[in-house]
Write a protein that binds this DNA or RNA. Structure first.
Lengths: 252, 252
DNA sequence: AGCGCCTCAATTGCATGCAGTTTGGCGCCC
DNA sequence: GGGCGCCAAACTGCATGCAATTGAGGCGCT
């Protein structure tokens, strides 16, 4: 099986993809919460580009489901409904089962080392519910997808994983993800062992447990008061990476 | 189970989505073949908008994998590799199994009628390999996805189905799709009967057979000579719907 | 005081203009 | 005759400018 070229899915030029990456990261690290406003001007100013580019980036992120674009209205970070979150997890389960099915018993030594290193990093950044470890946990799954060498699979797994990540900030209590790390280790072990069925069911139950830990109430009142949540971020954001919110307003 | 709002996935404003839809359709009907050039100017002129909008539309389609965007180069209709085609079908199988799993035994009378009407239409537009019946066959699957009321699932199934459609124009011989119509009918029947396992395996084998009919050779020399294939389309395109190709050039 | 209208700042929708890059065609040299 | 290099045209990358829409605050009316 010859290694295929690692083609970039789309991510047109450069400036656009830089903004996309930055916003994606800000969103999944919950520096930008669902409902946060993303005015084209502010984005452009923050990243030193024109509105045209910022707009294009927002378009891409909207295509990924991370932001919502309403005609003539300010773009906002997407606020998936509980049902959409559930759907996303269902899809994710199927996709990631496919990933591990393709990978079982086929990992190279280098790949195994990479995976172990990543999980070690997850272990290092402990804190369970802090944004960075959530991001790392998500990236573990994306890393797996990359190893299939299937750009399409990478794209879909990434997208849906980001979406799931986004829902965690909406519907999850400060859940601990340490157990998830152990599950990651178990998945690696099963992959190395090459037991297809085992690793598929491991992945299934792993994601299922993440989902059920996260999506607790059928329809919680949107968690806490958005105003409170946003407050600490609105004034300074993350300094270097995150667009500063122009005003603190109750989103919607 | 309350009916969820049929949210539009992204498709920002209007003009952009009009162009996207038109191009998507032109591509899956094979009026625009893989490799066909899509200069922003021509698109803008054709649709009566500025390059900015055409560019944005191309960005969206690139995010869907239907066109390829290379920096400083003319955008072209995507030319998936044989391996990518195979990957797309693998993903599609999983996604559509999920669709029918969710749908089994849950279709309303109206939905059943809609499905039957669609298959009748497929039957009417017989011709097996003509672009319209290929499009209809694809839309049958998208119609199914819609009935899950899961916008995310709709999006992914649509995208991956379009991609598969695109590969058909590259790698398939003038295959007949009449058998596919019967398989569609069988799927509807199984859905109505509510036999989850049955309908999932039906869908699996249906897509698998489409894939294997289509993806015949492991690595055919890109099918026939692209120049020959393009010739009849290059001069006139489809008149009203399709952007006219500026020149006949061997793509690549 | 409460309610509704109206105006204006904020923001998006879109086109155009300019600069930089690629293309491919012509001419020159070997 | 064939290959190499230069040049103009074509095209993209991006910013800016203008018109249109929104929504929010202020004003007057009841």
């Amino acid at each position: 099986m010859a290694p295929r070229a690692a083609s970039k899915t789309a991510e047109s030029s450069d400036k656009v993809s830089v903004i996309c990456r930055a916003l994606r990261r800000a969103i999944i690290e919950q520096a930008l919460e669902p409902g946060a406003k993303l005015p084209e001007d502010s984005l452009g100013e923050r990243f030193g580009v024109s509105r045209t580019i910022a707009r294009h980036a927002l378009g891409q992120l909207a295509a990924e489901g991370l932001v919502e674009l309403r005609r003539n209205r300010i773009a906002v970070v997407a606020t998936p409904s509980w049902q959409e979150a559930r759907d996303a997890f269902d899809i994710r389960i199927e996709l990631e089962r496919l990933v591990v099915r393709q990978l079982a018993g086929k990992l190279t030594k280098a790949q195994i080392a990479t995976l172990n290193a990543h999980v070690d990093a997850e272990d290092g950044a402990r804190g369970g519910s802090d944004p960075v470890s959530i991001r790392l946990a998500t990236e573990f799954h994306i890393l797996l997808a990359h190893m299939t060498n299937s750009p399409i699979l990478v794209r879909y797994v990434s997208e849906v994983a980001y979406r799931c990540c986004l829902t965690l900030s909406l519907y999850s209590r400060p859940h601990s993800s340490e157990c998830a790390i152990n599950e990651h280790r178990a998945i690696i072990a099963a992959l190395v062992k090459g037991d297809e069925g085992k690793v598929m069911s491991l992945m299934h139950s792993h994601l299922d447990s993440v989902a059920s830990r996260a999506l607790v109430a059928p329809a919680p009142q949107r968690g806490r008061d958005l105003l409170d949540i946003l407050a600490p971020y609105a004034e300074e954001g993350d300094g270097d990476r995150v667009v500063k919110l122009p005003k603190v307003v109750r989103a919607r």
